Simulated assay, not measured.
Amino acid sequence: MSERSDRTLDGDEPQLEGGRADQATESFIANRNLLFTVAYEMLGSAADAEDVLQETWMRWVKVDQDAVHEPRAYLVRVTTRQALTRLRTLRRRKESYVGPWLPEPLLTAPDVAEDVELAEGVSMAMLLVMETLHPTERAVFVLREVFGLDYDEIAEAVDKNTVTVRQIAHRARNHVAARRPRAAVSQAQNRAALLAFQRAVETGDLQSLLDQLAPDVVFLSDGGGAVQAALEPIVGADPVAALLTAGLGRIAGTASVKSAQINGHPALIMRIGGQVEGVLAMRTEGGLITGLYFVRNPEKLSRLEQETALRR
């Protein structure tokens, strides 16, 4: 349990009789990592996912535990509904966001990378694709494609009938298929590209990195208006190369980079003067870098010291 979730369980919850309180707490803790993963995949924000879990807990402890036959299904349903409500609010907030919005990066354990479907679902590239779905489509897609829930369960979670949910799932799958990366992520190719970036930072020699840029590479940086970042996507090998040459030239020799598993994939954590400056994730296809995702918004860099447990 995180410190934030510990406060959820010992601070403001309604007072329950001992046995009932223990039963509610045990069920919630047993499913907490799953619930967090559901909320995070729907929202792309760990801070908002934690808030959703707090709201789920507050509702859970008011329920007659003996009347709930499947706590996991019930908790997933409540979490989904709370995440849907928050997702609609976030969509309005993102309309005024300064520059590109990127998901909040999570330091993840090796077992996340071993679960291919989970790792793809929480990758920067896939979370950005899911940003293009409407809230209910995103909920249905996540619950069906990532967590494998049946249509009846999803229908209860999103308050739709089963026929409608099947239609939404079909539409969401087509939408994602048309926009998702063309090939499966190669962890080995990602590591090679990140190593080239690391060498460029440490030595100032960028050529091996620039040679790996795909013609249609896209660079996205998220400063959230709090720190300097490109305010629009940079597209194309030449513009991205120019940006990297200028940026890395300024910090070469002063910044340090360390490899880490971020959202189930190899990435780099960059520090200057010991302080986290940003997280760089990459997307490679056919040995070339097709996507660069640089998160610099300080509000999104708080979960890089301790691994976040994600579960399906």
Score class of each variant (00 low, 15 high):
279 V>R: 10
94 K>Y: 15
80 T>F: 04
154 I>T: 00
219 F>E: 01
152 D>I: 00
15 Q>H: 14
214 A>H: 10
171 R>I: 06
246 A>D: 12
194 L>P: 05
132 T>D: 08
175 H>D: 11
227 V>M: 07
186 S>T: 15
58 M>C: 00
2 S>K: 07
305 E>A: 13
195 L>F: 15
310 L>K: 01
6 D>W: 10
98 V>K: 09
188 A>V: 14
224 G>C: 11
234 I>W: 04
159 D>R: 00
7 R>T: 10
158 V>W: 04
276 V>A: 11
27 S>C: 10
233 P>F: 07
192 A>Y: 13
104 E>W: 01
286 G>I: 14
259 S>R: 12
302 S>P: 04
181 P>N: 14
105 P>D: 08
221 S>N: 01
271 R>Y: 12
47 A>Q: 09
129 V>G: 03
168 I>M: 03
295 V>T: 15
227 V>F: 04
68 V>T: 00
247 G>K: 05
3 E>D: 11
58 M>Y: 00
297 N>V: 13
306 Q>T: 13
114 E>R: 11
165 V>L: 01
8 T>H: 09
169 A>L: 06
38 V>R: 00
118 L>Q: 03
82 Q>S: 05
28 F>S: 04
68 V>R: 05
302 S>D: 12
235 V>G: 05
97 Y>D: 14
41 E>A: 02
206 L>M: 15
83 A>W: 01
118 L>P: 02
86 R>C: 03
121 G>P: 01
17 E>A: 12
267 A>Q: 10
56 T>A: 07
302 S>C: 08
151 Y>C: 04
174 N>E: 11
228 Q>R: 07
101 W>K: 04
40 Y>E: 06
124 M>N: 07
297 N>A: 14
185 V>Q: 15
157 A>W: 03
119 A>K: 04
221 S>C: 08
58 M>V: 02
206 L>E: 15
18 G>D: 15
191 R>C: 08
180 R>T: 12
299 E>H: 15
57 W>C: 02
229 A>D: 05
70 E>T: 09
288 L>R: 15
155 A>S: 04
309 A>Q: 09
54 Q>T: 07
283 R>H: 13
218 V>P: 02
120 E>F: 09
201 V>P: 03
110 P>S: 07
51 D>A: 09
234 I>N: 06
14 P>L: 10
301 L>K: 08
166 R>L: 00
249 G>I: 12
298 P>E: 12
62 K>L: 07
273 G>E: 08
220 L>N: 05
204 G>T: 14
277 E>D: 14
168 I>A: 00
306 Q>Y: 09
264 G>L: 12
77 R>K: 09
120 E>K: 14
255 A>F: 12
175 H>K: 13
268 L>S: 07
178 A>R: 13
216 D>K: 12
154 I>Q: 01
203 T>R: 14
16 L>V: 06
33 N>D: 14
169 A>I: 03
220 L>F: 01
85 T>V: 05
53 L>D: 06
105 P>S: 11
270 M>P: 05
99 G>E: 08
256 S>Q: 14
298 P>S: 11
